[in-house]
Nucleic acid binder design. Structure first.
Lengths: 212, 212
DNA sequence: AAGAAAAGTTTCCTATAGGAAACTTTTTCC
DNA sequence: GGAAAAAGTTTCCTATAGGAAACTTTTCTT
């Protein structure tokens, strides 16, 4: 059975379960880099030529990978992920529920207030690097009325923040509220309840860095 | 620099990410299948011979992968994952270790502690807090001060930087120089030689956060 | 609908991954 | 400490991945 035959089979029979003596079963998924790559490329409206430029790989190579004519090496997969600005596992994982969150929302309870939701829009930075000691991200803090606050945000580790734009109020569980303007920063233990709200009319832009 | 040399370097200097305002991240990552494979195999107390039997791959192939002499194809990585009964991403993702903090401190900075060198003026932030996991500071990078970038800067840990004002060039020991404008950021292993110079006529203002 | 241009595929060749076996290093056991 | 066994590495060869360019198919354009 040649390679193409094998691939044809895989196409028809996506996955398979294998069990050992103790009946420990494991699934062998058909993890198709080709199909994933093609999906990602077409969703981003890229031609093979453009994808080639971004990844530094030959047009022909991309075509052959997409058509499952070859199995890419790991180094090629890294170039694909890097060049197309995706996480490496996306190349062989069916798009399911969003695993890495691009945004983290905090909802506050405000009884009687119709649209009383304070939303942070988080934009993760350096996401392609895994196992970082620090997690940097920018947040747009929507402008809102500063009296309405609810649940504290808490999480493991320490947090540093710097105000890039606007003016915010940093509310914490154990300290007085602090007003921070552009250029101001704060550092605190994130297990302490904390909350940032925009006190200016515009949204505020914040840089956060957390470390556990 | 031949392939082995590159791999040797990569071994020591894992990876780096550079992001612009739209969070388009260019990154060069070292996700070592070799080191991961060796770690998994030895932790499971398997010899190359046993791993070979389980995965159906040659002993020599496994050895070469572990020693980063070759980049395995995706189909080989699937055999590794399946045969060693692990998830595929484990082959290039380091297990994360977590630490716990008991401290509950917050410190605010409207003005920090200046500390000047020839090219940089450093302003340490959150100095009141000791034993932090992260060390944040702002630097004024003097404009076009090209004479003083003789030696690389190196230190333990990882470093994140964000350009607050101006335009700089991030020079690193093993990667192409990266031009960063206001809002751009970078994340890298600080044991790799690195250096920032201002390419605009004005001084540049940088936020740094380091963690060991 | 015909020609041109763009996108995608295949061919052909070179570079490199993977396997068998020889070789080297490390461990075990007396 | 030395021989034997086991574990790991390197060599050498074959199979296959990856790149350049020719070729085919699809999409515009008029």
């Amino acid at each position: 059975m040649d390679t193409q035959d094998k691939l044809d089979k895989l196409d028809k029979y996506p996955s398979m379960a294998v069990a050992d003596n103790e009946n420990n079963t494991r699934m062998i998924e058909k993890a198709s880099v080709g199909l994933q790559l093609k999906a990602i490329r077409t969703q981003n409206k890229l031609t093979l030529e453009e994808a080639s430029k971004r990844t530094g790989l030959a047009r022909s190579t991309l075509s052959k990978i997409e058509n499952e004519q070859i199995s890419p090496t790991f180094s090629v997969m890294q170039k694909l992920a890097s060049g197309l600005d995706i996480e490496l596992p996306q190349l062989f994982t069916k798009p399911k529920e969003s695993k890495v969150t691009g945004r983290r929302d905090v909802t506050l309870n405000n009884e009687g207030t119709p649209h009383a939701t304070l939303t942070y829009e988080h934009e993760l930075l350096a996401t392609q690097l895994r196992n970082k000691k620090m997690m940097p991200y920018k947040s747009r803090v929507h402008a809102r009325n500063f009296e309405h606050f609810g649940e504290w945000v808490r999480h493991e580790g320490e947090e540093f923040l710097l105000v890039l734009e606007g003016e915010v109020q940093l509310l914490t569980e154990f300290y007085e509220p602090a007003t921070l303007v552009e250029g101001d920063s704060a550092y605190y233990d994130a297990t302490m309840g904390h909350l940032v709200i925009s006190t200016s009319k515009k949204d505020a832009l914040i840089l956060w860095v957390t470390a556990e």
